[in-house]
């Protein structure tokens, strides 16, 4: 039995060294290879200089995904007066996070606050609360708050108990009841905790402020795909937010002060990170149908 074990160990060691040798490209100087860069240019590179791309492993990914980007404190400001229900944010989000048509990380809702008030459109992502009720009920520490303000979920840890769905007052979380969208396409892809991709059947998913894009210095998908300038996104610590459509940068504190911004269900003490500017002086008329629930 013991000898069998040592043979097995030797096999593993040999196998791994064989594998690592595979990842190195054979070096024969002078050989050129044609490659397409991410910007769409065809370039010729010496084969000697080729190295396998730096892909973080699952454990590394999970580790850095728990820490967040140092010194940052992400906030979103949603200007309700600009939204005309183009739903481009939802489309972009569902493509990015591999969501089925009925699943939403961000959803544009039709709202009417009281009987005689004007209805308006309200995009609703996860509020990334600073006092999140959802993370506290997770029995396996699968959902957590990062130091940069983002509330994330690790689908590799999630057991699908759905306590967090019950705890969230904003209904921001979705459950993968079925095989996720494009499941075959993403088969074998290393799980990215900062994008929740590939999605896993029987686990929770939620808006993550496109944490993978933030790491690359890009705005979240919903923010940059909006055609109407609804979203502002930025770092609260440096007091600046950038509009995803116009790319204009402005002072965060000034923006929310001058426009009387508010947060959703403030009375719950969840301290949301998503601020709303009231739907005043609307750029587009409301075209939806709202049922009268107030009479």
């Amino acid at each position: 039995m013991k000898t069998l074990g040592s043979i097995g160990a030797a096999g593993v060691v040999g196998g791994s060294s064989f594998l690592s040798s595979c990842s190195k490209v054979q070096t024969t100087s002078g050989d050129k290879i044609r490659l397409l860069t991410s910007s769409g240019e065809l370039v010729e590179v010496d084969k000697e200089q080729l190295k396998p791309a730096d892909m973080p492993s699952l454990t590394e990914n999970q580790k850095r995904g728990r820490k967040g980007l140092p010194g940052r404190s992400w906030v979103m400001v949603i200007d309700l007066s600009k939204c005309r229900n183009a739903r481009e944010c939802m489309k972009g989000c569902q493509n990015h996070h591999q969501l089925r048509p009925e699943q939403h990380h961000i959803n544009v809702l039709q709202m009417q606050d009281a009987e005689h008030t004007a209805p308006y459109y309200m995009p609703k992502p996860c509020q990334h609360c600073d006092n999140p009720p959802c993370t506290k009920v997770c029995p396996v520490n699968a959902t957590f708050k990062r130091e940069d303000g983002i509330v994330l979920i690790d689908n590799e840890r999630c057991i699908g108990c759905r306590f967090c769905i019950a705890a969230c007052p904003y209904s921001a979380r979705v459950f993968n009841w079925f095989e996720p969208r494009d499941a075959e396409k993403y088969e074998g892809v290393t799980y990215n905790i900062e994008a929740n991709v590939p999605q896993k059947k029987g686990t929770i998913s939620k808006c993550l402020f496109s944490a993978d894009r933030l790491r690359d210095g890009k705005l979240p998908t919903c923010v940059s795909s909006c055609p109407n300038g609804v979203y502002w996104f930025g770092d609260r610590n440096e007091n600046a937010v950038t509009n995803g459509t116009t790319k204009e940068t402005t002072s965060f504190s000034k923006l929310i002060k001058e426009n009387a911004a508010y947060t959703l269900m403030e009375e719950l003490g969840t301290k949301p990170r998503v601020y709303y500017l009231p739907p005043k002086d609307r750029a587009f008329p409301f075209q939806g149908e709202i049922e009268d629930h107030h009479s």
Binding site: R72, G217, E238, A240, T249
Partner: peptide, 11 residues
Amino acid sequence: ISAKKAFGNLP
């Protein structure tokens, strides 16, 4: 004159 921020230049 502007200052570089996370996603753009703040005038």
